[in-house]
Every structure is written in C-alpha cells, then in structure tokens.
C-alpha cells in the first residue's frame, strides 16, 4: 500500500517538476506508438474495408492470416523482427536494430492485423442496402465505399483504439528490438520493467500511472471521432 501511495505522489512530482528524462520517455513512447498506429491504419483500414465489402480474391485465406495475426504473441513478433534486422538478417544493412525504427516495425506488425480484422468486421456489419441506396442517390464507387466506411466508423475507431491499446502497453517486442537504451529506445513500458527489476517500485508505479493516464486521454479523444457525422 505504501508503494502505491508513494507511486502516486512520485508520479505527480515527476509530472509537475517537468522531469526531462521522463518527458523524453513519454515523447518517444508516443512517437513510436503514433507512427506505428498511423502506418497500421494506413494499410489496415483500406484492406479491412476491401475485405468487408467482399472485393478481394482469396478473401478466406487473407482473413485467416489476419485472425492469426491478431493473436500473435508480441515477443514472437519481436524475435522475428530481431532476426530480420540483425546484422546477419536479410535487412541487417538498414542498421535499424536497437533504434526506434525497429520498434515501429514490430508495433506495426502487432497493430496491423487488429486494425484490418476489426475494420473488416465493422464494414461487414453495415446494412448492405446502404450501398445500393447510396448508388441510387448518385454515389460513385469511391463515394459508395466512403459512405460505408463512415457508417462503420464506430467499429473502425474501436479497431484503432484496440490496436493502440495493444501497442502502447506492449513490452516484449520493443524490449527485444529496441534494447531499452536510455535516451535512445527507452519507452514507458520498458522503463517500468527496468524499475521493477531494480526494486524502484514507486517509480515503476509512477510510470505506470502516467501510461494509464495517457492511454485514457488518447482513447477519450479517439472516441470523439465516433460522433462526428451530423451535418
């Protein structure tokens, strides 16, 4: 109980004191997760929409791959990315291992199937008659698809929120491919692990509380997107 109280107090103190190291960690966490989420959305939403509208060949096979991807253990993803980016790996020449780039790659692999799979489900749940109605009102094919996607926005935002939650809180993959290097690849989750291991529970708790608060605020902002439609 003492640790929790001290953790709360330390969290407040760290935030209010404007601790530079803490803000660096928070900033890097947001940068890595933000970039990974943006890339996963960029590829995952169109793929999910195409699958949901039944416009893809090998639909069943792609769906199985996506569902499998949704259950990928992050540590396995980390291991895979590590091997790909290690000096002897096929992408070793990029020299991305132990850099934020490697962490972004790993997080994209984790987030992409979540975004694509849940977007597909959301689009499939839209009344199929809506496409016909949109076309009857003069929509082009692109407008028709955009209309369906907008109707599925609650599900698409939920997909984004789920993917965000999966990667902001993820530790196994970023630890493996980032290395938790202070000032370079240390993010909130890896810092929590480190401080727990070294027995600094109060700081670990403080970081955990900051992570939770950040997640809460970002999810709140994303949920506002579900309501944007009325003209």
């Amino acid at each position: 109980m003492d640790d929790i109280t001290r953790g709360l107090a330390q969290a407040l103190e760290l935030i209010l004191s404007g601790d530079a190291a803490l803000f660096e960690i928070v900033l890097l966490s947001l940068q890595v997760t933000g970039a990974a989420l943006a890339l996963a959305m960029l590829a995952g939403i169109p793929l999910g929409a195409a699958l949901g509208l039944g416009r893809m060949r090998a639909q069943g096979l792609v769906t199985i791959f996506l569902y499998t991807g949704m259950g990928l253990p992050p540590v396995v993803v980390g291991l895979f990315v590590y091997l790909m980016l290690s000096r002897s790996g096929p992408f070793g020449s990029l020299a991305w291992l132990f850099t934020p780039s490697a962490m972004i790659v790993a997080q994209v692999i984790i987030a992409f199937p979540v975004v694509a799979g849940l977007t597909m489900t959301a689009v499939q749940a839209v009344d199929p008659q809506l496409r016909l109605q949109a076309r009857a009102l003069g929509a082009t094919r692109i407008q028709e698809m955009w209309t369906v996607l907008q109707e599925a926005r609650i599900g698409v935002v939920a997909a984004t929120v789920a993917a965000f939650g999966a990667i902001i809180s993820e530790v196994g993959a970023v630890m493996l491919v980032g290395g938790n290097i202070e000032g370079k690849t240390r993010v909130l989750t890896t810092a929590i692990v480190l401080n727990t291991r070294t027995g600094d529970f109060a700081l670990a708790l403080a970081l955990g509380m900051i992570l939770l608060t950040l997640t809460f605020l970002i999810n709140g902002a994303m949920l506002q997107l579900q309501r944007v439609r009325d003209g």
């Binding site: 809506l130 109605q133 109707e151 439609r229």
Partner: peptide, 16 residues
Amino acid sequence: TTVFQRPVLLNANVRA
C-alpha cells in the same frame, strides 16, 4: 433515384 420500401438512413441526424 429510388426510394426503397425499407428506408436506409445514415447513422446521423435528419438534416445530414
């Protein structure tokens, strides 16, 4: 344009 038997409306307000 067509008005169908079952009106399919957007999940938005009447104006939109």
